[in-house]
Deep mutational scan, measured.
Amino acid sequence: VSVELPAPSSWKKLFYPNKVGSVKKTEVVFVAPTGEEISNRKQLEQYLKSHPGNPAIAEFDWTTSG
């Protein structure tokens, strides 16, 4: 189950709350306009370098507050 949070234009930000008793931590995933899922800052940096014209990296908020 995921919750969609505010994201930069043409992107989606999905929040996957951890299940009770789960060892997996809460996860935030950005979905690029191409449909590619980005789950960490390093991936995001690589994606933005190879896909010019996207929002600046500073516009991506990895917190769950939206």
Rank of each mutant, 00 (worst) to 15 (best):
F15Y: 14
F15C: 10
N40I: 03
E45V: 11
V28T: 05
V29Y: 08
K19C: 13
T26A: 13
H51G: 01
L48F: 03
P55C: 03
A58E: 15
Q43A: 10
D61T: 08
S2L: 09
A56L: 09
E27A: 15
G66Y: 09
E4F: 09
P33H: 02
S10T: 09
D61P: 02
A7P: 14
P17I: 15
V31D: 00
Y16R: 13
L44Y: 02
L14S: 03
L14C: 10
P52N: 04
W62H: 01
F30Y: 06
A32L: 01
E4Q: 09
L14K: 07
I38V: 07
L5S: 05
D61F: 05
Y47W: 05
E45R: 13
I38W: 01
G35E: 02
L5G: 06
P52I: 04
T64D: 08
K49I: 11
I38G: 00
V20N: 11
E37Y: 15
E27R: 15
A56D: 15
V28M: 05
P33R: 02
K13V: 04
I38P: 00
E59T: 06
Y47V: 00
L48N: 01
E37D: 05
W62P: 01
W62Y: 03
T34D: 09
W11V: 01
E4A: 09
K25P: 10
S9G: 15
T34H: 02
A32N: 01
W11E: 01
N18M: 11
G53M: 05
A56G: 12
G66F: 11
A32F: 02
W62I: 02
V1S: 10
T34C: 05
Y47G: 00
T63M: 07
V1Q: 11
K24V: 13
F30L: 03
W11I: 02
K25M: 11
E45H: 09
I57Y: 10
T34G: 06
E45L: 12
G21F: 04
V1W: 10
S22C: 10
E37K: 13
S65L: 10
A58H: 14
A7Y: 04
N18Y: 14
E36A: 05
K49F: 13
L44N: 00
R41H: 12
K19F: 11
K19S: 12
K13G: 02
G35K: 03
L48P: 00
S65K: 11
E27V: 15
V20T: 11
V20K: 10
T63Q: 07
K24L: 14
E27Q: 15
Q46D: 13
K24F: 14
S39K: 14
P8K: 05
P6E: 08
K49E: 11
Q46L: 13
L5K: 05
V29P: 00
A32M: 00
L5D: 04
G66W: 09
P8S: 04
T63G: 12
S9K: 15
P8L: 05
E36G: 02
N54R: 03
K42Q: 12
N40L: 04
K42C: 14
T63W: 05
K19H: 12
E59Q: 08
G21H: 09
S22D: 12
G66L: 12
K19A: 14
V23M: 14
V31R: 06
K25R: 13
G66H: 10
P33T: 02
K49N: 13
S22W: 07
K13S: 02
E37F: 15
E45T: 09
K42W: 14
E4N: 08
N18F: 13
S39Q: 10
V23S: 14
I57W: 06
N54S: 12
F15Q: 06
G35N: 03
E4I: 08
A58F: 10
P52H: 05
F60C: 02
E4D: 08
V31Q: 05
N54K: 03
G66M: 11
F30I: 01
E4Y: 08
Y47S: 00
V31K: 05
R41C: 10
G35I: 00
S2D: 06
K49D: 11
E36M: 05
G66K: 10
I57G: 04
T26G: 15
S22K: 08
L44Q: 01
V29I: 12
V31G: 01
P8N: 04
G53N: 08
S22N: 12
N54V: 04
I57A: 09
A58T: 14
I57E: 07
P55M: 04
V20D: 13
V1Y: 12
S10E: 11
F30E: 00
T64P: 12
K13N: 01
Y16P: 03
K42I: 13
N40P: 00
E37P: 08
K19R: 14
A56S: 13
I38C: 04
L14P: 01
F15M: 09
L14D: 02
K12V: 09
P52A: 06
